[in-house]
Amino acid sequence: MTARNVSFTLNGKPATLAVEPRQTLADAVRQHLGLTGTHLGCEHGVCGACTVLLDGDAIRGCLMLAVQAEGLSITTIEGASPPEGLSVIQDAMQRHHALQCGFCSPGMVLALESLFAHTPCPGEDDIREAISGNLCRCTGYQPIVAAALSVAEKNRANLGAAAPSA
């Protein structure tokens, strides 16, 4: 099958790629744009390593075809990181030692970005639900949850919001 052009917003900038219909979004950003922060683990929707944001919501990059991105806004881990230094979530993950091998980390960061965008002060249950589709084989998840809780705590202090009742 011949390649076709697909145009979408990638990390805030317009992008046009020539892709085969069978190419997944995760493969396309890695192979055509060299954005290899989007990791591919299982390639069938189980592990969450390929998580990207679609209009702000975490989705599986391996379960969306690149051609389907036409006109949509995609954010990869490269777009969720500041040009220098670390994002708030990345910084919290570093401080809490929330990664060892780092393979799941881009997906974890984006799953949490999506959570915090909707829920600035999530409780532990919200956090565990948000990362429930992301496998980590190193940390046992506790440091990741602790990192996310520390971000929630910081947001709560900044917003002066009450602690969640849950």
Partner: peptide, 9 residues
Amino acid sequence: VGHPPTRAR
């Protein structure tokens, strides 16, 4: 049903 990222799509 699934997880937030699979339910989003």
